[in-house]
Design a protein around this nucleic acid. Structure first.
Lengths: 204, 204
DNA sequence: CCTACCGATCGGTAGG
DNA sequence: CCTACCGATCGGTAGG
């Protein structure tokens, strides 16, 4: 009989990633000491190293899980509705109506990727490119009349607007997240649909 | 006769801030070693400490100068034109048509402020608030018909879009910076002007 | 006696 | 799971 991994191994690993995520988001990866993370988990430093053999591994696992989850969610958007504008709105919702955990990881993905060695950055950068590509597809669905090279800048304008909400927006404030989603969607679509030659589509 | 500080003292301090800024922007503040900065300057580490008595002082001086310059530039916008939409366009230009140096410092202000001790963060955060306040004033000029608490989120949508250009936009690419300024201005103003009750202004 | 630097090294810290 | 400790690193300093 070979010894098996404890049943709650994955649960504990996730709990560590959550505590570490909160800390990384608040202080930045280099400022967060392994001892701090251990304290935040109510565990010892050695216990941490049982689950993640290096600080980099912890950051990498956290970001990989986050980006893969985000991509899954975006890929699911077309199953929700066929209307391109509603798909766009669903995408905005994904970014704004996130859990605290997801918001933290998003901030970390933006700020702390550069503290990983190049070789570990690459697969994560590829996942980020995939997010951008999927967002671009959604934009093409909304307004197919632009020149191809223009979708990238508009995608980035949108993603910039959405990413920045992590910095300033607090769902506990006056503006409800639904209202913010609606305002961002209206603002962006109004300007984006006005671009390019947009002849009335011919119904078959 | 009292000895005076070398004539080129300020020039050299500026040259150090430029080299350090490039490094901080690329690797992040904690990853940039004083030795690396010295190497980038073609100088010795001791020389660095002659101009900045600590690494934190270097970061602080750089960000203070950058934010004060940015605020000066924004405050000058009303002198360029009276038309609110043209003022808005000038503001967008300030953010997009930046020098490499300014772009680097902007990235650093976003990412690395948290590596300063709290007491040194505070004055810089106040300068950042002033930038947001001034941007809000410009938005109010363009569309004065919104409820007061709504200007903050729209200001942040705009600033998010603008800040993110530091990440993805390369002026050397296909899209010229003027075109990007125009597209961002069109996109934002189209959606922003459609908001709120906007009765036709009565000409006197 | 000053400022502008250099080569060398110390004291403290953090990942593992 | 803890304490003790290492090898390496790095910000900051002292002598000339």
């Amino acid at each position: 009989m070979t010894r098996v991994r404890a049943d709650d191994y994955d649960d504990k690993a996730r709990a560590i990633m959550d505590s570490a995520g909160t800390l990384f988001a608040k202080t930045g990866y280099p400022n967060a000491k392994m001892q701090d993370i251990a304290n935040a988990c109510g565990a010892s430093k050695s216990m941490l190293y049982h689950y993640f053999s290096a600080k980099d591994d912890l950051l990498f696992a956290m970001l990989k899980e986050h980006l893969e989850q985000l991509i899954d969610d975006i890929e699911d958007v077309p199953n929700v509705t066929k209307d391109p504008k509603e798909r766009f709105y669903s995408f905005v919702q994904l970014y704004i109506q996130k859990s605290t955990k997801s918001r933290h990881r998003h901030v970390i993905a933006m700020n702390d990727l550069k503290y990983l060695p190049k070789a570990r950055q690459t697969p994560l950068l590829e996942l980020e490119s995939e997010v951008v590509r999927l967002a671009g597809e959604l934009l093409k669905g909304v307004n197919p009349y632009l020149d191809e090279p223009l979708y990238k800048p508009y995608t980035m304008m949108l993603i910039g607007m959405l990413n920045w909400t992590d910095i300033w927006y607090r769902p506990s404030g006056k503006i409800k997240s639904q209202e913010l989603c609606e305002r961002i969607t209206r603002l962006f679509l109004c300007g984006f649909l006005a671009e390019g030659s947009a002849p009335a589509p011919i119904s078959p």
